[in-house]
């Protein structure tokens, strides 16, 4: 897990403005607190895809919407993945927004960079397992991939028990820095559609 300063700045809407010494101190403090509070955890499961290209074989789950169908086209299997920084990060940001809001907003952005890096590491591991034949991550809530399918991720990955992720009535997950996604595994060249 790492925090990318350039990425954090981008999330905060930074467009080249000069940073004062105080800003630098705020960034350093936010990043350090974020790294100390985060308890990154990930979980994944790999399923072969049925003929329709969007049904996880034997799992009783079918992804809905055109976007995910397109994303998984040419894929023979899919990874269902989830990662979180844990609740201590939520508590940290909450506390900082009361104590020192300037550091609080930076910590919030830095935590996004941190969870993205955690998910990137997981993607790399999966890429290595699959000889690089994977798609990028696609999450529900994007395009027409319904947010309601978050409950399928929760159940398939036992996210409550394994990650300490909770889901609200509006499909919002807590801890807030939590990501779920689908990663497709393409068939080998020339054997399109073949099961792995």
């Amino acid at each position: 897990m790492r925090i990318d300063r350039a990425e954090t700045l981008r999330y905060l809407g930074h467009r080249g403005q000069e940073l004062s010494a105080a800003d630098e101190r705020n960034f350093a403090r936010a990043e350090q607190l974020c790294l100390a509070a985060a308890q990154p955890r990930t979980v994944w499961a790999r399923y072969p895809l049925d003929e329709d290209g969007v049904t996880l074989s034997g799992a009783g789950v079918t992804f809905r919407g055109n976007a995910i169908k397109k994303h998984l086209s040419g894929c023979v299997a899919a990874y269902v993945v989830a990662g979180t920084l844990g609740l201590e990060t939520d508590k940290l940001i909450r506390r900082l927004m009361t104590e020192d809001p300037a550091v609080g907003v930076i910590a919030d952005a830095a935590a996004v960079s941190a969870i993205e890096s955690v998910m990137d590491e997981l993607s790399s591991d999966i890429a290595a397992r699959e000889q690089g034949r994977i798609t990028h991550r696609f999450s529900c809530g994007y395009a027409d991939f319904p947010l309601e399918q978050q409950t399928d991720f929760m159940r398939l990955l036992d996210m409550g028990r394994k990650l300490g992720v909770y889901i609200g009535a509006n499909m919002l997950m807590t801890p807030q820095k939590t990501v779920t996604a689908v990663i497709g595994v393409r068939g080998e060249k020339g054997v399109h559609g073949e099961r792995i």
């Binding site: 467009r15 403005q17 800003d23 960034f27 809001p101 300037a102 907003v105």
Partner: peptide, 14 residues
């Protein structure tokens, strides 16, 4: 005008 960004706005406000 984009001369300062969010954390700086908040520092000023504080």
């Amino acid at each position: 005008a984009g001369r300062i960004f969010l954390p700086q706005l908040i520092t000023s406000a504080e």
